[in-house]
Nucleic acid binder design. Sequence first.
DNA 1: TTTACATTTGACCGTTTGGTTAAACTATAT
DNA 2: ATATAGTTTAACCAAACGGTCAAATGTAAA
Lengths: 203, 203
Amino acid sequence: MTENDKQTEEKIFEAATEVFTERGMDGARMQDIADHAGINKALLHYYYRTKDHLFNAVFEKIAGQMFKKFAPVFDEKLSLEEKIRFFFKEHITFLQKNPRLPGFLLNEINRNPGRIKKLIQQIDVNKLWLILEAQHKDELKKYNITKETMPQLMSSIAAISVFPFAARGILEGIFEKMNINFNDYMEERKGYAADFVIKAIKK
Amino acid sequence: MTENDKQTEEKIFEAATEVFTERGMDGARMQDIADHAGINKALLHYYYRTKDHLFNAVFEKIAGQMFKKFAPVFDEKLSLEEKIRFFFKEHITFLQKNPRLPGFLLNEINRNPGRIKKLIQQIDVNKLWLILEAQHKDELKKYNITKETMPQLMSSIAAISVFPFAARGILEGIFEKMNINFNDYMEERKGYAADFVIKAIKK
DNA sequence: TTTACATTTGACCGTTTGGTTAAACTATAT
DNA sequence: ATATAGTTTAACCAAACGGTCAAATGTAAA
């Protein structure tokens, strides 16, 4: 009943997450999801009426996870440099555990840019800047950070953290001949990226 | 005729490029490509036997274009800093004219990592480092650049240039509320990115 | 004009796809 | 035990899909 219920619905959701993140919305097959969940295909439609419903459930959960990972930076009582180190360490560690999320998200956002905008509209970027400014008022004078350059800086930080996972196939192809392991590279990147960014923004 | 022949084949290729880059391999429909080219669907199979053939033709051309854009840096007789500025200016300008290529390529590489590896195997990364070292022997002492940190640096440069186009949907969502135009942001990025990287690598 | 060959088309085919349905199964409360 | 309601299944369906084919059209040489 309610116990088993949750089990089945969750099994479906997990199977759908696996298949959708691997093949994308267009490439995913309902039969394949059913097989992964070890159930009948009709049962998918019993819990999630259509493929779209199921996909949206998966997409919104993943997108939410991704964005939440950017938030803790504002809570922590750390210096600016420490925050940057903290972010790269936490974010890359998260992506190491979920290496397919970046590619999946970027692809689905390109396929349907409208969907993500609803989630983004909830973020008050102006407020975020005010918080950051208040937290590091004196500290900020030592860095080339202004409200105007924030978009460039933030997108660069996101790029450095996210891009390697989205472009993993290319990087692994290149690394193969250099005897470099992708996981080692990613582990090293936590520190390299932080040093890189901190040096870049210092006055 | 050979004249008309080229016209038709090219029309198909261009239509296929448009549809494939917009919808991806799985999302693209042969009928849609035929409509875009203004021809019968059977004619697609006359020139390109299968959807796979047509897709591979498009993919390899686009992947080739993308990688070639990284090459001129090694030919130009410029200082290291000038090369970095040259790269971001040229590469971002290219992507401004082809904004869908990054998302398309990253997605298709994730869908089939094996395909790109054949193209990559042709690149001799070790040789590239030797060239760079020879070109900037003395100059390199002023920067934190070694053979060991090259992968981190190069992937960061690529990330800063490519990521905004792949994540355009997210960025535009955020920029909307800040009254920032994506094209203005991209134009500004050519200089910002160069400054950013140069500062990051200076000793 | 006829011949030979390449190009283009509409109609068609078998398969795969997301989705439906009626019946079977399960568990709980009476 | 039996009625009730939720759960699961096998069988099925219509639409969409990539691909085929024979016939029609265009073209250039003999």
